[in-house]
Design a protein around this nucleic acid. Structure first.
Lengths: 270, 270
DNA sequence: TTGCTCCTCACGTCACGTGAGGTGGC
DNA sequence: TTGCTCCTCACGTCACGTGAGGTGGC
């Protein structure tokens, strides 16, 4: 016979836990001194404690452990308990996997927003861009509808995504309600899936400018780019592009004054 | 301004939750009628509720959400919170993965024990066994030490395991304290790792008998097998094998009367 | 007497959910 | 008056942990 302290050392369970298990009717002492209230555990309780410990390691709730111990004789039910528990664990696992993936995406986005802010120059520049594989949805309507399209692409391509969202503008003039545009996201690989086209976006020479501020002030930056092109005798090669380096975050919408949008206009000598 | 019921519908949070968030100082109503106690939520609270909801989806504790909301202006801290949270989630994920794997192993073992019980014939038989890849630890000492060896192999080879534990006996006579034996477990693939040898176990002709009961009664079954071999003029080809189809379970030790052990003795015509 | 083990009882954790019992406005 | 929304207060969940305050045996 062991005192609760001794039994605690043997089983690796705290004294508090042992008292709690007694209260729950899960693991009762072999005897209790009626005068002092001292608990006594017999050697046969060690095996019971071991089983409880194993089942707790497998995250079984105490109520179910009580059931399993009671049904020990039957034996047949153990397998079913195990299978049910595996279901339960699999659910939690799936849940945390999802959370983990979501956190990964958000963190990545935040990091890129930081570096974009650090790297930006805010001057009109000419550069050569690389060809890029993108998944895109071409649409007509209002620019503000592009959010949903980016969302659809992101959900579909998940971990194959590899860059910021890009919008292609196919109109040569500004259109409010009937614009012709395409929401794209760079992907590592992939094929067409319901309404989303995967293709190579051509590279080449272009004029760029990083715009800082809300989207409704993009016009000012476009003016700067077009001035530059006129001065240098360059002509537009549609579609033009906008790259959203930093927009409303997933958590905080953030301050529109800090949004970063890169304007890219493919050009050829006029 | 919205009543708590309206705001609940807008945000998808229950009324109880909204009251709780107020109590926690997380999301306070824009106004409270001092006479009736009725809560009023302004439209600007919708965005706050959205952020709280997003962060709860990512499993942030309420206390940390409070912090994040307070530090919103700073902005810089969000990324660190996200990274810390990813750490926390990764831990839980790893924990549940481990539980899941353990459950899988135990379930598999229980299932195999069931089918073994259903298939066993309990007669001496001759059969041809297939070559098997095993991971084994050869040792000298007492048979009862094999448990640790099986444990080591199981931990090392984890998901590459593909069968019940096998013991090889290299002695031609019974030895109590200085037996020469090898604890093996079938594996799908693998290479030698500290003290564990991976190799092909030869197949061939052998005499088998399924023994049902405690290990200390194995002698009776060996007698039956040896009788059979004598009658049929067969000679032993060392090492002999024991396959533990059902022994003490991982959870319950179970009734030794129900243990199932297969004796396999490789033979050649004498 | 001191130090150790043991006892009970009450409360805290975490993010809410579940009533009970009652009020205010249409 | 009825039905609906809203209110507060107390308690439950889950598996313990953390004291506080006190007792028994060496």
């Amino acid at each position: 016979m062991y005192s609760i302290g001794e039994f605690s050392k043997i089983t690796g369970m705290t004294v508090k836990t042992l008292r709690f298990y007694q209260e729950q009717g899960l693991l009762t002492p072999s005897a209790v001194d009626p005068r002092t209230g001292y608990r006594c555990y017999g050697a046969e309780k060690i095996e019971v404690a071991r089983i409880i410990g194993e089942l707790r390691t497998l995250d079984f709730p105490l109520a179910e452990i009580t059931e399993i111990l009671r049904a020990d004789q039957a034996g047949a039910s153990l397998l079913e308990h195990l299978e049910r528990q595996q279901q339960a664990i699999a659910q939690k696992l799936a849940n945390y996997k999802q959370i983990n993936a979501a956190l990964g995406r958000i963190i990545e986005q935040e990091r890129q927003a930081r570096t974009a802010m650090a790297d930006a120059s805010f001057d009109v520049e000419e550069k050569t861009i690389e060809p890029t594989l993108v998944a895109g949805i071409r649409m007509r309507g209002r620019y503000s509808d592009c959010g949903k399209a980016f969302g659809r692409i992101a959900r579909r391509f998940g971990r194959h995504l590899c860059g910021k969202p890009i919008m292609l503008h196919y109109d040569s003039e500004y259109k409010e309600n009937d614009a012709d545009f395409e929401a794209c996201m760079p992907v590592r690989m992939g094929a067409d899936v319901d309404g989303i086209a995967v293709r190579q976006l051509a590279g080449g020479r272009c004029v760029t400018l990083m715009h800082r501020g809300p989207y409704d002030e993009l016009g000012r930056s476009y003016a700067k780019v077009l001035d530059y092109m006129k001065t240098h005798g360059l002509a537009i090669d549609l579609p033009t592009r906008e790259i959203y380096h930093k927009g409303p975050g997933m958590i905080f919408k953030g301050n529109p004054r800090k949004y970063l949008t890169e304007i890219q206009i493919p050009v050829r000598s006029a």
